[in-house]
């Protein structure tokens, strides 16, 4: 509310400022896009694989941030959404021979269903109750993967067919890259629009004060269902891409270690920052590859980074950028 008053007071300045910001941002985006499209020419297959992993984690982080950063709900079901998506894509390709685009949509749909399934208890319980509930939900999903052998191929997982179309660009990793990039840009772009719409404002209102939001006519239930559903959709699609990336889906990929990684990315990237999430994903999936020779300290480094962020930059990388580069400030950034 204070925000509206603030912007009307300095309206003119804001408009100019925003317009300039938009042009700058447009230019920046175009440059980024050109570089991203040309990237495969600079890297070998291994590096391309790592970059592909980064793209997937950027999508995961943005999806997780919708619930964690914008809606402000401590939900630990992210690894479950990820797994549901990976299984949906892999299994529909194996059992139903679905073509890739449909299999990816299946991942999105499965993720959305899982998201809404978690949103329903979130209407009733909050805070640590929700955290514990979602933790249990994630482990339950893993149990299902392990024990529903007939459908999920049990604990050892299964190989995902490799669509021939991905090999058309020379190496399959390169084909995957352009597919992942396209999906990620569309999905993240849509998320940015959603967050700027009245739905996004409703998420933030719920985060700031649920009761106040309700008294101002925001439907808390609807906001929660949409946020969880959309988060599940994004992370589910990311899971579908992950199935494609690895060519194999196994239950162990979607456990607590995955959750920590997702969590650390969002926290270090910054709660309520899309750009921060993307940067966090690049940093935290890239660093372990660069630090390959220091194996064994990943957990320690991630947890120390998390602690450092909590102490010294609670807004994460996104907050840092917003403070330094006004053109990149995100409208709904956590104040």
């Amino acid at each position: 509310m204070s925000k509206t008053a603030d912007s009307s007071a300095t309206g003119n300045y804001r408009v100019n400022h925003l317009a300039r910001g938009r042009t700058l941002r447009g230019l920046g985006l175009a440059t980024c896009l050109a570089l991203l499209l040309g990237l495969p020419l600079l890297v070998n297959e291994y590096q391309q694989f790592v970059v592909n992993t980064m793209v997937i984690y950027a999508l995961i982080a943005v999806g997780f941030n919708v619930v964690l950063g914008y809606l402000g709900q401590l939900a630990f079901a992210n690894a479950a959404f990820f797994g549901v998506g990976a299984y949906a894509t892999g299994l529909t390709m194996v059992h139903l021979a679905l073509p890739l685009p449909l299999a990816l949509l299946a991942a999105g749909a499965a993720g959305t269903v899982a998201g809404i399934a978690v949103a329903l208890p979130a209407l009733r319980v909050q805070g640590h109750y929700l955290a514990i509930f979602t933790l249990a939900f994630g482990e339950l999903m893993r149990w299902v993967y392990v024990h529903a052998d007939a459908v999920t191929f049990g604990p050892s997982g299964f190989n995902v067919p490799r669509p021939a179309a991905l090999g058309l660009l020379g190496s399959p990793e390169r084909g995957k890259y352009y597919l992942f990039l396209a999906v990620a840009i569309i999905a993240i772009g849509a998320t940015v629009r959603l967050l700027r719409s009245r739905f996004g404002r409703a998420f933030v209102a719920v985060r700031n004060n649920e009761r106040a939001a309700a008294s101002l006519g925001v439907s808390v239930a609807r906001a929660k269902i949409i946020a969880f559903g959309w988060s599940g959709f994004l992370v589910g699609v990311a899971g579908g891409l992950y199935a494609l990336l690895n060519g194999r889906v196994t239950p162990d990929s979607f456990g607590l270690a995955q959750l920590l990684l997702n969590f650390a990315i969002v926290m270090i990237g910054g709660l309520g920052s899309v750009l921060g999430s993307i940067l966090g994903a690049i940093l935290l999936t890239g660093a372990p590859e660069l630090l390959r020779n220091f194996a064994g300290i990943e957990e320690i480094v991630f947890s120390l980074l998390l602690i450092g962020v909590l102490f010294f930059m609670p807004k994460g990388i996104g907050g840092l950028i917003a403070a330094r580069i006004p053109a990149l400030r995100e409208p709904l950034h956590r104040e």
Binding site: E45, Y46, Q47, F49, T53, N246, S253
Partner: peptide
Amino acid sequence: LEDDACDPNKGIAAVKKLTAQ
């Protein structure tokens, strides 16, 4: 010698590093 952390994704990355790099 590369680490795979018993994780398929890290294992694929390790193999790609060994072969491509």
